[in-house]
Design a protein around this nucleic acid. Sequence first.
DNA 1: CTGAAAGCGCTAACAC
DNA 2: GTGTTAGCGCTTTCAG
Lengths: 344, 344
Amino acid sequence: MNKRKTISIKDVAKESGSSLTTVSLVLNERDHRISPATRERVLETAHRLGYRPNRLAQGLQSRRSSLIAIMVPQLRHAFADVYFGELISAIHDCANRSGYKILLEVAHPEFVRNRLYLELFDRNFVDGLLCLGVTNKDIYLRDLAEAGHAMIVVNNYLPAQKLNFVRCDYLDAGRIAADYLLGLGHRRIGLIHGAPEVQTSLDLRKGFQQALTAGDVKLPESCVEDGLYTEEGGEAAARRLIERQPQITAILAGNDKMAIGAVTGLKDLGKRVPEDVSVIGCDDIHPAGYCDPPLTTVHTPIYELGRRACERLLELIEGRVDQVREVHPVNMTVRKSACPPRPR
Amino acid sequence: MNKRKTISIKDVAKESGSSLTTVSLVLNERDHRISPATRERVLETAHRLGYRPNRLAQGLQSRRSSLIAIMVPQLRHAFADVYFGELISAIHDCANRSGYKILLEVAHPEFVRNRLYLELFDRNFVDGLLCLGVTNKDIYLRDLAEAGHAMIVVNNYLPAQKLNFVRCDYLDAGRIAADYLLGLGHRRIGLIHGAPEVQTSLDLRKGFQQALTAGDVKLPESCVEDGLYTEEGGEAAARRLIERQPQITAILAGNDKMAIGAVTGLKDLGKRVPEDVSVIGCDDIHPAGYCDPPLTTVHTPIYELGRRACERLLELIEGRVDQVREVHPVNMTVRKSACPPRPR
DNA sequence: CTGAAAGCGCTAACAC
DNA sequence: GTGTTAGCGCTTTCAG
């Protein structure tokens, strides 16, 4: 295939009657010493010939790949997840604006075992790495930090390690949700959290519990369930919760998918949402506004977060900063899935 | 950052006391003339030093990037779409097995206007391109074919152009769906199709109409609505359909998202699914099995399709084939969203 | 102002 | 068997 001989800077030089250096200088606007006449001639020739600098050669020279990798966990359909998808979109948009492209990686067991995440940098594949869906078990990320590679954990963090991160304040998310439910008058409240190996999940629970305690409401172990961050998990968790504690009038779910699943589960049990049981989610993914009832949820600025993470990564790459530790505020988005409990 | 000096083939040569050539030959298993002793020595040194070949240099030499791009349309949350997500997962898995990595591209207006899709190849960014979510309006894809670049349209095709594709048989999908509904006894049937600029959408409609006609059932214009391939679109389309033609007992939607939206819309109108109105979808995305009621749908082998597309792209890249035109069969997956109409 | 030449890290003819 | 050398396409001193 591909018949058209690829045209190089050498062709432009020959055709425009100047040297390689001159062409390079003009094209990179490196030096303003070049005479306007030459400049014009080179530019015209380059354009006429349809010259495109070879990125591999440029990269070899500059030691830059202009690529950043996004690493997602190996979940079924990680790429089909709305939450990851919004982050990926944000990162892509931001990276593109700065001339970077996006490489996709899945942290499958072999990738981790063979330390292929290091190879990504060692082989000059990418200039930086953004890690999504990180858990406390992903201690191998320390290798990256130790090697001094540009890496940021997106919307999470590892408590015991000083890895770069850009995330939301899930401790506050828990508090806000609790205060909102308390404010509505709820006293019997349940929690469906994500995975216990995810730090933000632990934070959410902690903040939730603290605020409930401050409001003189207890959150016993029997009112907490694991929803695995999935719809199906949320649905099953809601069932278990209500069967065990039928007097519960409100539930906080650690993400919107679980909340949506919980609503399904509650409806199946014959409960109306929010009249019988209020449900609030967390994250405010796009579908949260389009389910039935529209979900009241703790809004986390997902797109903004992705954009910021990418921006900061570029700063790391370019050496403009050497540490990133960013926590973004969250707030309630009130829709229709929560209301005061019925008077007893 | 990044203190560790990157170690090159030169270091390995020096350290192992042999020449660049020897090291390269050993590492690439290019030549079996190398004595086992040297071989062993080189390998040991390379391993000890943690040598990693620089991909940029290798690429410059081989004119290969080992990257393939996936291009998705610029829809809100294209990356958050289950259908695209499953394809991307499949492509990623397949590419990875063959040592390729995945680059993400969004076909935004500027990308198309400035022909950046050509630059992808001209600048040696990628070796091949997989296009998702293509419509009949994307005539610019012709440029890629004309330039002789390795490119495949995934699960679609452009009728007037001879572009490579790997897709399902949506004409047959329409027929199968029609036959299934006719078999259940439905005579008043509606269609919610995707976008009229998408060829497979037209095919589905055509196949559906043909089979209905063969079964002596009409599909008047008033029983057809556009659902924009989204949940919201499907919901609105179902509403319009039922309000205009209340006697409809079954609906085919052009994808599962619209089908799920349609179910929501029907429920809102007080219709039971499937007792009052049967709904069948198309594609069989993962959530189709988890909604309420579980969706009866035309199963398209999405993951398999992504895998095949990637495999064939690699063959194109490596020059083992020079044309790809693959059509995969579909079949019904029967769940609970369709049943015989109530006797009148 | 412009050009010659070195070198980024690697591969592969072509010698020895 | 192994090493020398010439590129791949580009950027960047350093002379002129």
